[in-house]
């Protein structure tokens, strides 16, 4: 039996909103030691999502037997919208489940709502992603990155990212003209989360599809900062750290013809 209780429903609500536009059907893997993990690839095979919710992400977590919960994220989103952000959220499944039980309790315990969601058999490819060495790592406020990704998409379908020792340059070029945004490394002593950190082994020049970057920045509601790991000509990693877990996106680059 699986019983995972979140201190507040808002984490799951934000997670599902962040990924449901990229992937529709996902297998949630549940185990006592690993908690809940998920790997899903978008239909175009360009963007991969990897989620880890350690047992420590939960107020209470119990999973007697490893389980795979195949869920339609559209449906899960509909159910999660029924609960308030500050409600307790508990996910419950039997050992060979046909359904996932989703229970919301308001903190005053005078309202309990229960939903049963049908599970699906989902046949999906799982890719083996080893820890990669990257040419550079950038950590910046997730809202800053979201703004650049959204703004630059209005200029072009592609966003070029150039990283040097102390700055990151985002460039877009399209039918109406060109644009660039330069972000410089700095340390904010008052608020560390506002700092911009660049670790560089080698300068990087990579291009990504703006559409995918706009999907990725939907996760900026989950973490105040995002870490972007880039290497020339290989997929980039975008990581949003959660308390006791992470949401990672791997994005295949675009190459010049």
């Amino acid at each position: 039996m699986l019983e995972g209780k979140f201190e507040s429903a808002s984490l799951m609500k934000r997670l599902v909103e962040a990924i449901k536009d990229s992937v529709k059907l996902c297998n949630f893997n549940c185990s006592q030691t690993k908690g809940i993990t998920l790997q899903a690839i978008d239909d175009s095979r360009v963007l991969l999502i990897s989620l880890k919710l350690d047992p420590g992400c939960f107020e209470g977590f119990r999973c007697d037997k490893n389980l795979v919960l195949g869920l339609d994220l559209e449906s899960l989103s509909k159910v999660l919208k029924q609960g308030n952000n500050e409600d307790y959220l508990t996910l419950i499944a039997e050992d060979a489940p046909d359904n996932l039980l989703v229970v919301f309790e308001d903190p005053k315990k005078d309202r309990i709502s229960e939903f049963s969601l049908k599970l699906m058999d989902i046949d999906s490819d799982v890719l083996s992603i080893e820890d990669m060495d990257h040419d550079c790592s950038i950590t910046l406020p997730s809202s800053d990155f979201a703004k650049v990704a959204r703004d630059m998409r209005t200029l072009s379908e592609s966003l070029q990212i150039l990283v040097t020792k102390d700055s990151v340059k985002f460039m877009a070029s399209g039918p109406i003209g060109t644009g660039s945004v330069i972000i410089k490394a700095h340390t904010d002593l008052k608020d560390g989360k506002e700092s911009i950190k660049i670790d560089l082994n080698k300068s990087v020049n990579v291009t990504f599809g703006a559409k995918y970057l706009n999907d990725i920045v939907k996760a900026s509601t989950l973490a105040e900062t995002v870490t972007i790991k880039l290497t020339n000509k290989i997929p980039a990693l975008f990581e949003f750290k959660l308390q006791g877990g992470y949401l990672r996106y791997y994005l295949a680059p675009k190459f010049d013809e």
Binding site: S44, V46, L48, I129, T207, A252
Partner: peptide
């Protein structure tokens, strides 16, 4: 113009 690559050309299936 630039071509979109696929993750499948970088990562193997498990």
């Amino acid at each position: 113009a630039s071509n979109q690559t696929s993750l499948m050309s970088f990562f193997g299936k498990k």
